[in-house]
Amino acid sequence: MKSLKRIFIYTFLSLAAIVSIFPFLWMLVSITNKSVDVTQGRLLPGTHLIENMKTLFATVDIVPALANSAIIAVITTVLTLLLASLAGYGFEIHRSRGKDIVFNILLLSMMIPFAAIMVPLYRMFGSISDTAPLIGIDSLGAVILPTATTAFFIFFFRQNTKMFPKDLVEAGRIDGLSELGVFFRIYMPTMKTTYAAAAIITFMNSWNNYLWPLVILQSPEKRTIPLLISNLGSSYSPDYGVIMSAIVIATLPTALVFFLMQKHFVAGMMGSVKG
């Protein structure tokens, strides 16, 4: 009976692992094969990798798309971390009744579906396009601005700040630091793990964001990676080897970020869960 249960558990978990991993294996095998072999269901590595990469870089504008995505993701991450941690710190350390009310109102914005505000946002950025082209329609700025402040990360930082030793703030003040000085010189270095976790999630979200860039970006040279892949995927005569290569290249940054910082990620998630 006991060993039967063990066998069941291991079979179940192995099946789950296979289902989870299989699309990745298929993707990695496919980038080494010709498009014809991919459609014929070849599951063995081939020798077409370099050929696929050459075709990809020659026929698809993947480098500008990577650059756009990287610029957007880095700026979004820096802005989100700075603004959300300032606010999370402010709400928790300088706690007051008024701020608690504001905090709860901000949390409500987490329930706002993006699809509901997409049209007004589009019109808003459209109306300033002429006066401020840098943040108008078809600009990277317009992609960044609405995504750089989210109530979720304010909540996230506030939850994690609950574990921050408050005595350090007092100690900093006595040492003559200004309120901002306390934040930058004491809080930030102490909360490295929280920042790392938030950075991973923001970077991944931004890198993978699809709907808003699809709405606001128009010219092909402004395209981000998800827009490019979506375009490749909907072509009528797809070259599977090449498309898979693009997908692998697009997935590498987030996969790397995740695996390098996995410990911080789990620690940060637990911090926000404990609360």
Binding site: A87, G90, L106, S109, P146
Partner: peptide
């Protein structure tokens, strides 16, 4: 001074979340 820490986020979320909700 506590309000200074949160003011930018409050303004940004109002402009990019609440105001569009009213508009919609």
């Amino acid at each position: 001074v506590g309000w200074l820490f949160i003011i930018i986020s409050v303004i940004a979320i109002t402009i990019f979340n609440f105001y569009p909700m009213v508009q919609a």
